[in-house]
Simulated scan of single mutants.
Amino acid sequence: MAMINCPECNNSVSDAAYKCPTCGVQLRKAKRGFFGKLFKWSFIGFNALMLFWAIAGFNTATKDIGALTGAEQAGAAIGTGIGMAMVLTVWVLGAIILGMFVLFTRPKVA
């Protein structure tokens, strides 16, 4: 274990320390572990996928709606509303669950 000088108070500090024990300045940033990175990128990918899914689903559901009769338009609107509600429900619940995993696997500094 090597010793380095603190950039703030110039005292000798271990190179493994996150903060200077004398002045408290942060010397290096804690890094996420494997599972922390996995959950973080899963969270980002999930939200990107859900955004794409919501936009693509809405566009597909409303495509050529003008060519339908009144009752068909009402049915398409109701079905689109139910579908969007389901997508948003899955999105919110999934984001909360994955967000909690991201939160619990964040790097901790002693």
Rank of each mutant, 00 (worst) to 15 (best):
I78G: 00
M84L: 15
V90T: 07
A77P: 04
G83T: 05
G99M: 04
L98C: 10
T105Y: 05
W91P: 00
P107Q: 04
Q73F: 07
I96Q: 07
R106N: 08
F101C: 00
W91V: 00
A95V: 07
A85Y: 09
I97D: 02
M86N: 11
L103N: 09
A95S: 15
F104N: 02
G81K: 03
I82E: 03
T105F: 12
M86Y: 13
G99I: 01
I96R: 08
L103K: 07
V102L: 05
P107T: 04
I78E: 06
V90K: 02
V92Y: 14
G83W: 05
V87F: 12
E72T: 08
A77M: 13
F101Q: 01
A74T: 04
L103R: 04
I96V: 13
F101N: 00
G83A: 13
G81H: 07
V92T: 08
T105V: 06
G75E: 07
I97C: 06
W91S: 00
L93N: 00
L98N: 02
T80Q: 09
R106H: 14
G94I: 01
G81M: 04
G79R: 09
P107A: 11
A74D: 06
A74P: 01
W91A: 03
V102K: 00
L103G: 01
I97L: 14
V90E: 01
T80H: 08
G75T: 05
G75S: 10
M100V: 12
A71R: 03
L98V: 09
V102Y: 01
V90R: 01
I78N: 07
E72G: 10
M86C: 15
T105W: 08
A85F: 15
T89P: 02
M84E: 12
G94V: 02
G81D: 03
G79L: 07
F104S: 02
T80D: 07
V92K: 06
A74C: 03
L93M: 09
V92S: 09
L98M: 11
L88Q: 08
A76W: 07
E72K: 13
A71I: 10
G99L: 04
T89N: 02
M84Y: 15
M84R: 07
G81Y: 09
T89Q: 06
Q73T: 01
A76Q: 10
A74N: 06
T69A: 10
M100G: 03
A85K: 02
P107Y: 10
A76V: 00
T89Y: 13
F104Y: 13
G83I: 04
M100T: 10
L98R: 06
V90L: 14
M84D: 06
I97K: 11
M100Q: 05
V90H: 05
G75M: 11
T80K: 08
R106I: 09
G70V: 06
F101P: 02
T80P: 07
G75A: 11
V92M: 12
G83V: 01
T89F: 15
A85M: 11
G75C: 08
T69L: 12
L103W: 13
I97G: 05
L93R: 06
E72D: 12
T80N: 05
I78P: 01
